[in-house]
Structure formats: structure tokens, C-alpha cells
């Protein structure tokens, strides 16, 4: 939208179809600013949830999508909790994120997601490296008293429980793999982890990419079926 156009906005000329699925399409906002008061990040970079809602209500969706605001917000939901009109502001934020050209998504979010879609994990970590890291950490646990028998069951068909792995736990935080593994061992759990598509994050949630989320969730379901597992532990 050009600045020239933005000056000519009138309520009669709003393009309504684009926002038809959004609950604020009929301009429900009372401008009460309860959302602004509740928002922990209001004021940063001039962000304010009410401004986002006003931009949308006035049809300036592109301006909102091009701004940094949808990415400064963490979609924590304080605003929608307090909104007297029930406007689902975090949902608006996520849809605005989805409107960004994928090469304009900030930070490493899109790179990580593209890696995940291409290789099954955000790091693009090859299977043999993944298995090596898991077995290395398992060997460390086995050196601790009471865990001498510990091994990591990878791709165990018919196991009772499937877990996923947050990519940082096989990258910079490998010690944090040990907590759950020790609990499983002490509980006598019959658990496993898949060597393919083990990623526990789904960054399509952050980038507004529903299709990517479907793909990531579908792969976990495939692992459940392939390995004939009874119970899935939701990713942490």
C-alpha cells in the first residue's frame, strides 16, 4: 500500500474478503486499549496490539505484515485474554507472519524450518551423526552408578512410548538429553526414539506456515505407525 492510498481509506471502501475469516472483519475493536495495557512488550519499537488491530480494521493489512511488530510480539495471549470483544489477536499476529514472503522471515526461523522439511530436522543433521551423538550420551549415562545397563533404544519396533528430540539437545545441550532418559530407565519404561524425522520442534508455528506444521506432525504419525508404538509423548 502506498502512502497516497493510505490517506484515502474510508470505511465504505474496505476490502472485506481478505479478512473474512478473521473475527475482527467487522471492526469489532472498541479501541479501549485493554490489550495495550496487558501487553508485556507494548511500547517496544512503538508496538502496541491495538495498533495492529486498528491497522487491520482499516484495511492496512500489508502495512501491518511489513512491519517488525508481528515478530516482536511473542503471541503470549495476554491481549486476547483481556479483550472485551473477544478479538483473537495472537491469531492475527500469526496470520500476519504468514503473509511475509518466506525470504523475508527474520532470523534463522525460515532456514531451520526449510532444513526440517528437507532433512527431517532443523539442523540438517545426518542420521549417522544423530545416532552417534545419542549413543555417546548414553555411554556417559552408563558410567553413572545405577545406570550401568543403560542404552538408548533407537527405532525399537513395538515399544510402548515414542519420544521426539528438540534439536538443541543434539547440538549445544546434549547433557539435557539425560534427564528424561534417566527417568525412563528408573521407571522401567519401554521407550524409543526414531532415527529419522525425530525433530520435536515445529517452527511453522512461529512462521505462520500451517502446511509445514502438517508435514512435521504427519511425520511423527508415520513414525508411530512404522514402529507400531502405543503412546506418543508430546514434544516438550
Amino acid at each position: 500500500m502506498t502512502p497516497e492510498n493510505s490517506l484515502r481509506i474510508s470505511i465504505e471502501n474496505l476490502e472485506r474478503t481478505r479478512c473474512a475469516q478473521w473475527p475482527h472483519a467487522q471492526d469489532n475493536c472498541l479501541t479501549c486499549a485493554m490489550c495495550s495495557g496487558a501487553c508485556p512488550v507494548a511500547g517496544v519499537d512503538d508496538f502496541d496490539p491495538r495498533k495492529i488491530v486498528r491497522l487491520i480494521s482499516m484495511g492496512m493489512t500489508d502495512a501491518a505484515a511489513d512491519s517488525r511488530w508481528p515478530w516482536i510480539c511473542t503471541m503470549c495471549g495476554k491481549c486476547e485474554q483481556i479483550c472485551p470483544m473477544g478479538i483473537e489477536i495472537p491469531d492475527i499476529i500469526r496470520r500476519l507472519r504468514a503473509m511475509r514472503a518466506r525470504d523475508k522471515v527474520p532470523g534463522i526461523l525460515q532456514d531451520g524450518l526449510a532444513n526440517a522439511l528437507r532433512t527431517g530436522n532443523n539442523l540438517g543433521l545426518p542420521k549417522e551423526d544423530f545416532v552417534f551423538i545419542l549413543e555417546d550420551v548414553a555411554a556417559e549415562i552408563a558410567e553413572e552408578p545405577g545406570f550401568e545397563e543403560f542404552t538408548v533404544p533407537i527405532d525399537k519396533e513395538g515399544a510402548a512410548l515414542l519420544t521426539t528430540i528438540h534439536n538443541k539437545l543434539v547440538n549445544t545441550h546434549t547433557d539435557d538429553l539425560k534427564h528424561w532418559w534417566k527417568i525412563f530407565h528408573a521407571a522401567g519404561e519401554d521407550w524409543t526414539v526414531a532415527s529419522d524425522n525425530w525433530e520435536g520442534t515445529s517452527w511453522g508455528y512461529f512462521t505462520g506456515d500451517d502446511e509445514a506444521m502438517r508435514v512435521m506432525a504427519g511425520r511423527i504419525v508415520e513414525n508411530m505407525r512404522r514402529l507400531k508404538i502405543k503412546t506418543l509423548l508430546w514434544p516438550e
Binding site: 508485556p40 512488550v41 517488525r68 515478530w71 516482536i72 510480539c73 511473542t74 503471541m75 503470549c76 499476529i93 527474520p106 532470523g107 534463522i108 526461523l109 531451520g112 517452527w203 508455528y205 512461529f206 512462521t207
Partner: peptide
């Protein structure tokens, strides 16, 4: 303040 991808957005 770390949610919604904020740790990886670069802001």
C-alpha cells in the same frame, strides 16, 4: 519474552 520464536528471530 522468549516465546513465539523470539529466541531465533534475531530481534
Amino acid at each position: 519474552g522468549g516465546g513465539g520464536g523470539a529466541l531465533t528471530s534475531g530481534y
